[in-house]
Amino acid sequence: MKLRKRRKGTKMSQDANSDPRLEVSAASDQDIQAVHASLLHDQKEPKEGFSLMPLFVLGFVSSMIFVVAIYFIHNRAGLSDGLALATTIHHPGYDPQVHGAGDEEVEIDVFAVGQSLYGQACIACHQVNGQGIPSAFPPLASSDWVTGDEERLIKLVLHGLQGPLEVNGAQYNGIMPAFGPSGIYQWSDEKIAYVLTYIRQEWGNEAGEITPDQVTAVKEATASQTGAYTAADL
């Protein structure tokens, strides 16, 4: 492209230049198109000062692709972890590799699975911090119902709880759904055991683990219970 240097538009009056109500233009449409078209066509011609740019762009683009590829592989679905967690939730303890091959014991992180179960159901009422909501949902943090008698805790989650209730000095009167076979959740004994272990060890609670066998035992012993318990029953 030849440089086309010319005088500024001399016809432009001084007040057009300084009037904010008019936007002066410094180039005609034809000029803009002609100049840019030739800029594209001339790109093959070597020019001084221009040659570094393509190199830089190439480097920039390829390093972006590199970084993004690494990021992508790092975060692709978390396929392996995600699937493993999904299977533990639906069939706790089931691992196709291990179960297909032999009778090795499967290690699962009870606390983590319990936490994710808590997040699926209990969180809606008892909140992330286990504090519940004043006068509607009782707290689980430092509640004697949680850290105290294990059988009582299992019973109320299996069959539900309703009616007047006192927790940490405050009164509640709500309905806690059943998570066992009589309720809509239909959680397995394992799931109930895991979530109870979780709430007994979170938010400063320090009580022992609850095993699936304990839940099974309580479930069989209370099979005749219909409807939710009241605090008085327990």
Partner: peptide, 15 residues
């Protein structure tokens, strides 16, 4: 248009 806006100058390519 010409009297209102004035004619634009030709576009210059930066050296």
């Amino acid at each position: 248009a010409d009297t209102v806006f004035g004619s634009p100058a030709a576009m210059e390519v930066n050296s």
